[in-house]
């Protein structure tokens, strides 16, 4: 199919440069002014556009939450599933359609809190999926409650005196569970983020891109982080690129230092590779 070039479209009034990937009949979207999800979504669509893969070979699966709405805005085969279950749904679809690129686009609460078990098991299986996680440290859609990614002492509507639990390091967890590709960027690392998503598409196996994102409406206000632009500029300012470091050292402290970069990019047999390795002898034995 013919894809429209971003440059060709730039001069056209009223049309989004990525409109061939957008369900523009669903605009306006629900995301708040100043929200970063749009930037991450645009990076994802740009990566799809630049991938030279037929759009019909992509499917986008989301769970529940603000980020979960992404599946509804992308003009690809797309499924908006239940809270936390995007990854197992994607696993079933990938097994049925092994040649398709399956992207799971969802938030930190969805992927790592209610859906954490599915995440680690899909990584362990090295299931050939690309997971893009909008990490805004909170449950945005319900008004900013504490999540397993909320920084220690951060204020949320359910931790009015500050979070007394320690958060997960998502990148470290992904790597420890067996992901073949792990990267983390902030929403101001737009080109690096887009490149990472592209690399993730082309990676055989379980690829994970964490995007440090602001939620100015909920998390930002409760923690007095200032206006939207200020928050992401702050995240960018304190971020340090440390490619290839062990993700356990990928510090994430939104006051002092956010370590970003590509931490893992390894070759590991995928679910499908190992399936093929184990099952042909059975077929041969039966003379098939």
């Amino acid at each position: 199919m013919k894809k429209q070039g971003i440059k060709e479209l730039n001069g056209m009034p009223g049309k989004h440069p990525l409109s061939d990937l957008l369900r523009d009949d669903r605009m306006p979207h629900i995301w708040c002014p100043g929200c970063d999800i749009g930037t991450i979504f645009a990076s994802c669509l740009t990566a799809i556009h630049e991938s030279n893969i037929d759009y019909n070979d992509f499917a986008v699966i989301s769970g529940i939450g603000c980020s979960g709405r992404a599946a509804g805005y992308v003009k690809l085969d797309s499924f908006h599933t239940t809270h936390g279950r995007a990854i197992p749904f994607a696993t079933g679809l990938k097994i049925a359609k092994p040649k398709m690129k399956i992207i799971v686009f969802s938030g930190d609460g969805d992927l790592f809190t209610i859906g954490g078990n599915h995440f680690i098991h899909a990584a362990r299986r090295n299931m050939d999926l690309t997971i893009i996680c909008v990490n805004n440290f909170t449950y945005g859609m319900t008004g900013g409650q504490v999540a397993s990614s909320t920084p220690f002492k951060a204020r949320t509507s359910t931790t009015p005196n500050g979070n007394f639990e320690r958060p997960f390091n998502l990148a470290y967890m992904a790597a420890a569970a067996g992901a073949a590709y792990v990267a983390r960027w902030t929403t101001l690392h737009v080109r690096r983020l887009t490149n990472s998503i592209l690399e993730a598409f082309n990676k055989k196996g379980f690829s994970f891109v964490e995007v440090i994102s602001s939620c100015p409406t909920s998390f930002g206000r409760k923690n007095k982080l200032g206006p939207p632009l200020h928050i992401i500029q702050h995240f960018h300012k304190i971020s340090v690129i440390k490619n290839s470091i062990h993700p356990k050292d990928a510090n994430l402290d939104i006051e002092k230092e956010i370590v970003v970069g590509k931490f893992v990019d390894i070759e590991r047999p995928t679910f499908f590779d190992l399936w093929e390795e184990i099952y042909p002898p059975i077929r041969e034995k039966r003379g098939e």
Binding site: F79, T82, F89, T91, L93, K94, A96, H118
Partner: peptide, 13 residues
């Protein structure tokens, strides 16, 4: 929960 989600995904496939 994952089993049920996976069969829905596979059926769509």
């Amino acid at each position: 929960m994952a089993s049920m989600a996976a069969i829905l995904g596979a059926s769509w496939g």
